[in-house]
Amino acid sequence: MLESFANVVRNSATSLSAVAIPSFGTFEAVKYDEEIVNDRVTGKRLLLPPQVVVEFHPAAMLRKRLNKTNE
């Protein structure tokens, strides 16, 4: 069952869509464009390729509950 859930998340990641779990958060695949970044250490300029990153955004409810327990 866990595997099938992972599959759903995987499929959504490949199609750049999101999986929302109420009161917990959203798994989201975000595409970043390629960009030129200055490396502070070497001073060289790097061309970063575009990439798709799976991100998780905690829901407001989860944030609230976790912050409450933190206090």
């Binding site: 992972a6 998340v9 995987r10 990641a13 490949t14 958060g25 695949a29 990439q51 798709v52 990153v53 799976v54 991100e55 998780f56 905690p58 989860l62 944030r63 976790l66 912050n67 933190n70």
Partner: peptide, 15 residues
């Protein structure tokens, strides 16, 4: 409050 790091497998598939 939550940091999420995608599994290497998942990240590879997504990317």
């Amino acid at each position: 409050p939550v940091l999420f790091k995608a599994d290497a497998d998942l990240a590879a598939i997504a990317n």
